[in-house]
């Protein structure tokens, strides 16, 4: 499933802009939401190929958003979800989250270039 459209839910301006810049340069169509509520609404209203989801978000945490989208039933079966966080969760909650996500990345550990390669991999799978 080729990925073309991407939703970024990220509250850090610098990080959000950085991802938007590099993804747009690579030819993706990108929407960026800053708070959790707006992010969830966007994710449910428009069929994105991929969602980049931060966890420590205002209004609604990334974990809650993921739970709503994938917890009971998969509301977004045609969308890949990449959890992107800098928060070091405990093992238990991380494993639970990984179960509902297609990738789980520590932001400080990846550069936009690496992020692009992850998206390409997901796109190919």
């Amino acid at each position: 499933m080729a990925i073309h459209s991407i939703l970024i839910i990220e509250d850090d301006r610098f990080i959000g802009e950085m991802y938007v810049r590099s993804l747009q340069k690579a030819g993706y169509s990108v929407d960026w939401m800053v708070d959790g509520n707006d992010g969830l609404i966007a994710a449910r209203n428009k069929p994105y190929d991929c969602i980049l989801l931060d966890l420590m978000l205002p209004e609604k945490r990334g974990g809650e958003i993921l739970q709503i989208l994938r917890g009971q039933q998969d509301l977004i079966p045609n969308t890949k979800v990449v959890v992107l966080t800098n928060f070091d969760q405990d093992e238990h909650s991380r494993l639970a989250m990984e179960h509902n996500a297609d990738a789980y990345l520590i932001k400080a550990e990846i550069t936009p270039k690496k992020l692009l390669s992850v998206i390409e991999k997901l796109s190919a799978s």
Binding site: I15, R21, N86, T111
Partner: peptide
């Protein structure tokens, strides 16, 4: 660590780019 990693993300990201 979460707070420290935010700026590091931006520094590493833009340095790479």
């Amino acid at each position: 660590a979460h707070e420290l990693r935010g700026p590091i993300t931006v520094i590493r990201g833009y340095l790479d780019g």
